[in-house]
Amino acid sequence: MEEYAREPCPWRIVDDCGGAFTMGTIGGGIFQAIKGFRNSPVGVNHRLRGSLTAIKTRAPQLGGSFAVWGGLFSMIDCSMVQVRGKEDPWNSITSGALTGAILAARNGPVAMVGSAAMGGILLALIEGAGILLTRFASAQFPNGPQFAEDPSQLPSTQLPSSPFGDYRQYQ
Protein backbone atom coordinates (compact mmCIF):
# COMPACT_ATOMS: atom_id res chain seq x y z
CA MET A 1 0.00 0.00 0.00
CA GLU A 2 2.22 2.75 1.23
CA GLU A 3 5.67 1.30 1.07
CA TYR A 4 6.83 3.94 -1.30
CA ALA A 5 6.80 7.36 0.22
CA ARG A 6 5.96 6.91 3.86
CA GLU A 7 5.63 9.84 6.12
CA PRO A 8 7.85 10.20 9.16
CA CYS A 9 6.41 8.49 12.09
CA PRO A 10 3.94 10.49 14.13
CA TRP A 11 2.27 11.89 11.03
CA ARG A 12 2.08 8.51 9.38
CA ILE A 13 -0.85 7.61 11.60
CA VAL A 14 -2.93 10.52 10.34
CA ASP A 15 -1.84 9.87 6.78
CA ASP A 16 -2.68 6.18 6.90
CA CYS A 17 -5.97 6.79 8.64
CA GLY A 18 -7.12 9.32 6.09
CA GLY A 19 -5.80 7.33 3.17
CA ALA A 20 -7.53 4.21 4.36
CA PHE A 21 -10.78 6.10 4.88
CA THR A 22 -10.65 7.50 1.36
CA MET A 23 -9.73 4.14 -0.09
CA GLY A 24 -12.50 2.36 1.75
CA THR A 25 -15.09 4.95 0.86
CA ILE A 26 -14.26 5.01 -2.83
CA GLY A 27 -13.88 1.26 -3.12
CA GLY A 28 -16.96 0.64 -1.05
CA GLY A 29 -18.80 3.12 -3.22
CA ILE A 30 -17.88 1.20 -6.35
CA PHE A 31 -18.80 -2.20 -4.97
CA GLN A 32 -21.98 -1.03 -3.26
CA ALA A 33 -23.07 0.74 -6.43
CA ILE A 34 -22.87 -2.54 -8.31
CA LYS A 35 -24.55 -4.44 -5.52
CA GLY A 36 -27.36 -1.94 -5.09
CA PHE A 37 -27.89 -1.84 -8.83
CA ARG A 38 -28.27 -5.58 -8.98
CA ASN A 39 -30.44 -5.94 -5.90
CA SER A 40 -33.03 -3.33 -6.84
CA PRO A 41 -36.34 -3.94 -8.58
CA VAL A 42 -36.47 -3.71 -12.35
CA GLY A 43 -36.34 -0.28 -13.93
CA VAL A 44 -33.45 2.07 -14.41
CA ASN A 45 -34.86 4.63 -12.02
CA HIS A 46 -35.32 2.11 -9.22
CA ARG A 47 -31.90 0.65 -9.86
CA LEU A 48 -30.12 3.98 -9.78
CA ARG A 49 -31.93 4.97 -6.63
CA GLY A 50 -31.16 1.61 -5.05
CA SER A 51 -27.49 1.88 -5.82
CA LEU A 52 -27.42 5.43 -4.43
CA THR A 53 -29.06 4.23 -1.22
CA ALA A 54 -26.63 1.36 -0.93
CA ILE A 55 -23.69 3.73 -1.40
CA LYS A 56 -25.02 6.19 1.14
CA THR A 57 -25.60 3.57 3.79
CA ARG A 58 -22.69 1.20 3.34
CA ALA A 59 -19.74 3.07 1.87
CA PRO A 60 -19.10 5.33 4.92
CA GLN A 61 -19.25 2.26 7.15
CA LEU A 62 -16.66 0.48 5.06
CA GLY A 63 -14.52 3.61 4.98
CA GLY A 64 -14.78 3.86 8.75
CA SER A 65 -13.68 0.32 9.33
CA PHE A 66 -10.83 0.77 6.88
CA ALA A 67 -9.83 3.92 8.74
CA VAL A 68 -9.88 2.13 12.08
CA TRP A 69 -7.74 -0.64 10.67
CA GLY A 70 -5.28 1.76 9.06
CA GLY A 71 -5.04 4.01 12.09
CA LEU A 72 -4.52 1.23 14.58
CA PHE A 73 -2.10 -0.48 12.22
CA SER A 74 0.16 2.50 11.84
CA MET A 75 -0.09 3.34 15.53
CA ILE A 76 1.28 -0.09 16.36
CA ASP A 77 3.76 0.24 13.53
CA CYS A 78 5.07 3.52 14.90
CA SER A 79 5.25 2.15 18.42
CA MET A 80 7.28 -0.76 17.16
CA VAL A 81 9.58 1.55 15.26
CA GLN A 82 10.15 3.43 18.50
CA VAL A 83 10.64 0.30 20.56
CA ARG A 84 12.79 -1.69 18.18
CA GLY A 85 14.60 1.23 16.66
CA LYS A 86 14.36 -0.04 13.10
CA GLU A 87 11.90 -0.31 10.27
CA ASP A 88 11.56 -3.60 8.50
CA PRO A 89 8.81 -5.83 7.11
CA TRP A 90 8.47 -7.64 10.44
CA ASN A 91 7.11 -4.46 11.96
CA SER A 92 4.30 -4.39 9.44
CA ILE A 93 3.54 -8.05 9.77
CA THR A 94 3.46 -7.97 13.55
CA SER A 95 1.37 -4.86 13.65
CA GLY A 96 -1.04 -6.34 11.13
CA ALA A 97 -1.47 -9.39 13.33
CA LEU A 98 -1.84 -7.27 16.47
CA THR A 99 -4.36 -5.03 14.77
CA GLY A 100 -6.42 -8.02 13.75
CA ALA A 101 -6.26 -9.38 17.27
CA ILE A 102 -7.22 -6.10 18.92
CA LEU A 103 -10.09 -5.41 16.58
CA ALA A 104 -11.53 -8.87 17.20
CA ALA A 105 -11.00 -8.65 20.94
CA ARG A 106 -14.68 -8.47 21.70
CA ASN A 107 -15.43 -11.72 19.91
CA GLY A 108 -13.43 -13.98 22.16
CA PRO A 109 -9.97 -15.51 22.03
CA VAL A 110 -10.65 -17.89 19.15
CA ALA A 111 -11.79 -15.09 16.90
CA MET A 112 -8.79 -13.07 18.03
CA VAL A 113 -6.37 -15.77 16.96
CA GLY A 114 -8.11 -16.24 13.63
CA SER A 115 -8.22 -12.57 12.89
CA ALA A 116 -4.63 -12.09 13.97
CA ALA A 117 -3.50 -14.87 11.66
CA MET A 118 -5.46 -13.33 8.84
CA GLY A 119 -3.98 -9.89 9.40
CA GLY A 120 -0.47 -11.23 9.70
CA ILE A 121 -0.70 -13.37 6.59
CA LEU A 122 -2.24 -10.56 4.63
CA LEU A 123 0.40 -8.06 5.64
CA ALA A 124 3.13 -10.62 5.00
CA LEU A 125 1.79 -11.10 1.47
CA ILE A 126 1.63 -7.38 0.90
CA GLU A 127 5.13 -6.82 2.20
CA GLY A 128 6.43 -9.71 0.14
CA ALA A 129 4.81 -8.29 -2.96
CA GLY A 130 6.34 -4.91 -2.21
CA ILE A 131 9.79 -6.40 -1.80
CA LEU A 132 9.43 -8.42 -4.99
CA LEU A 133 8.20 -5.36 -6.83
CA THR A 134 11.12 -3.26 -5.62
CA ARG A 135 13.56 -5.93 -6.70
CA PHE A 136 11.94 -6.32 -10.06
CA ALA A 137 11.90 -2.59 -10.61
CA SER A 138 15.49 -2.12 -9.60
CA ALA A 139 16.53 -5.02 -11.80
CA GLN A 140 14.63 -3.67 -14.75
CA PHE A 141 15.64 -0.04 -14.39
CA PRO A 142 19.04 -0.11 -12.73
CA ASN A 143 19.35 3.40 -11.50
CA GLY A 144 22.65 5.08 -11.36
CA PRO A 145 25.07 6.92 -13.51
CA GLN A 146 25.16 4.58 -16.45
CA PHE A 147 23.17 7.02 -18.50
CA ALA A 148 25.91 9.56 -18.09
CA GLU A 149 28.82 7.24 -18.60
CA ASP A 150 29.26 4.13 -20.62
CA PRO A 151 28.80 1.13 -18.32
CA SER A 152 31.52 -0.81 -20.04
CA GLN A 153 34.04 1.81 -19.06
CA LEU A 154 33.34 1.42 -15.39
CA PRO A 155 34.97 -1.18 -13.22
CA SER A 156 32.46 -3.83 -12.44
CA THR A 157 32.36 -3.05 -8.75
CA GLN A 158 30.77 0.29 -9.48
CA LEU A 159 27.91 -1.15 -11.44
CA PRO A 160 24.51 -0.54 -9.91
CA SER A 161 23.73 -3.08 -7.30
CA SER A 162 21.37 -5.59 -8.78
CA PRO A 163 19.52 -8.14 -6.68
CA PHE A 164 20.59 -10.89 -9.00
CA GLY A 165 24.17 -10.39 -8.07
CA ASP A 166 26.71 -9.12 -10.48
CA TYR A 167 25.48 -10.96 -13.48
CA ARG A 168 27.56 -8.91 -15.83
CA GLN A 169 30.76 -10.44 -14.59
CA TYR A 170 30.11 -13.81 -16.07
CA GLN A 171 29.46 -12.74 -19.58
Binding site: M1, G19, T22, M23, I26, G27, I30
Partner: peptide, 14 residues
Protein backbone atom coordinates in the same frame (compact mmCIF):
# COMPACT_ATOMS: atom_id res chain seq x y z
CA UNK B 1 -10.45 -8.57 -7.95
CA UNK B 2 -11.40 -6.94 -4.68
CA UNK B 3 -7.83 -6.48 -3.56
CA UNK B 4 -6.75 -5.22 -6.93
CA UNK B 5 -9.50 -2.62 -6.99
CA UNK B 6 -8.68 -1.39 -3.52
CA UNK B 7 -4.96 -1.26 -4.20
CA UNK B 8 -5.54 0.62 -7.44
CA UNK B 9 -7.65 3.15 -5.56
CA UNK B 10 -5.02 3.38 -2.86
CA UNK B 11 -2.40 4.14 -5.47
CA UNK B 12 -4.69 6.54 -7.27
CA UNK B 13 -5.40 8.72 -4.26
CA UNK B 14 -1.72 9.21 -3.59
Amino acid sequence: GTFGTFMAIGMGIR
